[in-house]
Nucleic acid binder design. Structure first.
Lengths: 193, 193
DNA sequence: TCTACTATGCAACAAAATGTTCTATAGGAG
DNA sequence: CTCCTATAGAACATTTTGTTGCATAGTAGA
């Protein structure tokens, strides 16, 4: 029993538009009315799909916040793995809808359990990737297990997010190089061989 | 020529309520109507003060985002100064309206130049405080000038913000101790005496 | 192709939120 | 006491939001 293609088409068209509005104008402007105007889909149809404004907005959030799965690179050396992984992460912040949408999700999360779930799940995923890189480095003996890995992971991810979402500063290659250098130097100097 | 006390009283009462609504229910619910209902101030009066929803919300943002000026402590040692300063910062995030409002400002900033200005000014202020601490440590000769101060400042501030706003993890004394320890160890090991 | 099903568009509508304007009143300044 | 002005309140227009009924057209299955 397949789903009616009209349902799928409507959902996709509507959420595409909702996503764009969310990015360009903010969550305040994501409404059945604005999506209808942007897509040509009639308001009544939109109401049939998403009974209220809240569910429409949630759907728009969810659609964007699904983490792209990052092909792991953990063959070392640490600096190279880390640089590559954070490069992907930085690229996502710079060039994908996620970078533009994340601020809205952050705000929504402060008084919406649903949005909070979206973002914590997303972050859990990111952290796991970074952790894998450090774990591999420990496995290779490149650093020892007594480096404060949890703190390093947090700093590794926090810096680009903070810089982008809160400071609105550029995330470029030079900055990332410095960031990775610092992380590695911490890892190395705390490594007790 | 003093200002009519009624103007002041109305503004204060209204923005108090707007602030509370902003924190409890999110920016979506800050409207002339909701503030009127919360305060008893008539809608027409509110419209006279803030002609549209946008200006009302901006006013609410601005009111909360004014940085409390932090009495500087730069008499050393570095660890102690840093611990104290970040403690104040962490306290603000945990226990003042700013901590609850910041996510909303972050979101607003992504498509509102006004809000972006609010937050970048705020951050500039924070960074200056942290920088003063490092500068003093350099002045005392506790660390040398070749430590990557700018990166350290960013990490120092980024971590608590990221943890609170994005991860929704606890900011407690234990965490802060670890954080300051790590920052100091970076500063020390990069210090070339 | 014929039939049953259902998603859509559209119009009409109700309800609520959003702005606007006017007037009477009451508080504040000199 | 008098002038000035901020407020409350009501009346109003406008827009947004949500609902419903119906005709149309796309879809699936026989």
């Amino acid at each position: 029993m397949k789903e009616d293609p009209r349902l799928i088409a409507t959902r996709q068209t509507a959420l595409d538009a909702a996503q764009k509005i969310l990015m360009d104008e903010g969550v305040l402007h994501v409404t059945h009315g604005s999506v209808s105007k942007a897509t040509g889909i009639s308001r009544s149809t939109l109401y049939r799909h998403w009974p209220d404004a809240r569910s429409l907005r949630d759907a728009a959030f969810r659609r964007i916040a699904t983490p792209p799965n990052i092909p792991p690179k953990t063959d070392g050396p640490l600096r190279s793995d880390l640089r590559w992984l954070l490069g992907v992460l930085m690229g996502a912040l710079n060039d994908t809808p996620w970078g533009q949408i994340a601020p809205q999700v952050v705000a929504a999360a402060s008084n919406d359990a649903e949005a909070r779930l979206v973002i914590t799940e997303f972050m859990k995923d990111r952290f796991a990737s970074v952790e894998a890189v450090f774990a591999a480095a420990i496995g290779r003996g490149e650093i020892t297990a007594d480096v404060p890995v949890d703190q390093l992971i947090e700093l590794a991810v926090a810096a680009p997010y903070f810089r982008k979402l809160i400071r609105h500063e550029a995330l470029d290659e030079d900055w990332l190089d410095q960031h990775v250098d610092l992380l590695c130097s911490i890892a190395k100097t705390n490594s007790g061989h």
